[in-house]
């Protein structure tokens, strides 16, 4: 009784203009056009979106959590990237 699943697609929605697309979940579909329709039917029943992206899950390249230290920790040391690192006298405006 085995049968091929429709491929899995990840769904991203921009709920209002000005915002970025956010990952909301996944759907199965046989093709990209169907994927848009399924994503719309499953994830926007309450007018949650102005724009929809669907991406085949197999096409997503993700960072490996095992590499999280190497990828993300070094940024923690570089505090000079944060505005709070710099002491600016209060009288100076617009900085």
């Amino acid at each position: 009784m085995s049968e091929t699943d429709w491929p899995l697609f990840e769904v991203f929605i921009r709920s209002r203009s000005g915002l970025e697309h956010k990952h909301v979940g996944s759907i199965h579909a046989a093709d990209a056009r169907m994927a848009i329709e399924h994503a719309r039917d499953v994830y926007t029943r309450r007018q949650e979106g102005v724009s929809l992206w669907v991406v085949r899950s197999a096409d997503i390249v993700a960072s490996d959590p095992g590499e999280a230290e190497a990828l993300f920790e070094p940024a923690r040391d570089k505090v000079y990237r944060h505005p709070t690192f710099y002491a600016i006298p209060e009288e100076v405006k617009n900085l």
Binding site: W6, I27, H28, A29, M34, E37, H38, D41, V42, R45
Partner: peptide, 11 residues
């Protein structure tokens, strides 16, 4: 035929 079509037809 599929859950997704249940939703589509209901829509």
């Amino acid at each position: 035929p599929a859950l997704e079509e249940d939703l589509g037809l209901a829509n």
